[in-house]
Write a protein that binds this DNA or RNA. Structure first.
Lengths: 221, 221
DNA sequence: GAGCGCTTTTGATCTAGCTCAACTCCAAGC
DNA sequence: GCTTGGAGTTGAGCTAGATCAAAAGCGCTC
């Protein structure tokens, strides 16, 4: 049940959890299988999570099933706290995902007795807000190829510019993140491949190599 | 220069500023004319603002001029603080707008010596994040008519369900908020009028009456 | 290692919303 | 009053991206 699907190379933002939770980490670990729900929209926020390995998506649904993914959470990322007392969206596992869990109450109590705590909590929420602001610009005003280019650069940055970028999520997930259909995402990727900005690596279509980050960044506008 | 364009009926969220700034309000007032910039993206955040009357839009631009408006700020709203040290977007006046200004530094100093301060600052940023999350769903997954219906209901709610809803912003502003063109906004409004969900009031097209909020809410999905 | 199901790609067609353009309606200035 | 200009509406046609469909590729399980 706990077999790792990815090796984790000490992500850049790993300090977050320690800064908030403190050093003698009082938390348990848990592994969610692919597609399992971590928490649902409207549920009370009891726990806070940090990803050890895998990937989580958080999203909102319209009544007819249309889905908008807010964000993907990767190893090192903290999530479930930005919410306030009640979760404002659903979170589930994109692939098998191992998380560290601590109770929200425990974490907030700790924060109250720590000067830096309040500040780092505010920093966390502010960072989320900043991401959301950038994403609104993308959703409202970018073309499909610009969206996909921006997505690739975001994943590349968050994985510290690896030689091979591995995407844990499906084309449908990417589409629901970018406000497109899965076919349009696929076509945009093919366009970028044909224009020599990336190539697929190995058999799977989820490993790819960015061949020209500069050109991608220009597309991102 | 200071003539009011709207009467203000003590907005619901007016407590914000007082809660953060304190009672003996140390701040000056200023009036911006229609179209004037309050602050620009990338500028250092020196001041924090609360709207007395009028309306402010905050937005980001792509290099070729495409614009995405994050939010409209109406009387009572606080803005310019959520940013952190540097403004992440531009703010300018939709119409002639009177604001109360206080220095960011002054406000943050005050907050540090106040238990409730940190919490209410966090609450403010969290509220902004929540708005952004809802707006991402709108931008990524709603149709033009759904977007316009949602916009009208938002304005209606924020003005406390007035008999006549007055929109300070142009069709182009609404379009740039909803990720549409101004023509599409105009057509959507005409559709809603034809379907008896609203009617225009008086001469101007910026005063309207919501005839069936329930039906609008259904559209909002 | 054959078969099945899921994911992805690619093609063909459709359509919501964009673009371009004309016209109306005010409001402001002379 | 007349003129000018910005704002809004409406129409006609276009296009980016959606939808529908088929096939290919991969990773399961047995």
């Amino acid at each position: 049940m706990l077999s790792m699907t990815r090796t984790v190379s000490r992500p850049a933002n790993d300090g977050q959890f320690a800064a908030l939770v403190g050093e003698q980490v009082c938390c348990s670990e848990f592994t969610y299988r692919r597609g399992t729900e971590v928490f649902g929209e409207g549920e009370e926020a009891e726990y806070v999570y940090q990803i050890v390995s895998g990937a989580i998506r958080t999203y909102k649904l319209l009544c007819d099933g249309r889905r908008q993914i807010n964000s993907f959470h990767l190893p090192g990322d903290l999530f479930g706290l930005e919410n306030g007392a009640v979760h404002r969206f659903t979170a589930d596992a994109v692939i098998q995902t191992k998380v560290r869990i601590t109770s929200r109450r425990h974490l907030l109590d700790r924060i109250e007795h720590q000067e830096a705590g309040q500040a780092s909590l505010l920093t966390l929420v502010t960072r989320n807000l900043q991401h959301a602001e950038n994403h609104m610009l993308l959703l409202g005003r970018k073309t499909s190829v610009e969206k996909v280019a921006a997505f690739l650069l975001e994943m590349d940055r968050r994985q510290d510019h690896p030689d091979v970028l591995s995407l844990p999520m499906s084309r449908r997930d990417i589409a629901d993140y970018l406000g497109l259909t899965l076919e349009t995402v696929s076509r945009a990727l093919s366009t970028l491949r044909d224009d020599r900005m990336l190539r697929f690596d190995g058999q799977t279509q989820r490993q790819l190599v960015l061949l020209d980050r500069q050109k991608l960044a220009q597309l991102d506008a």
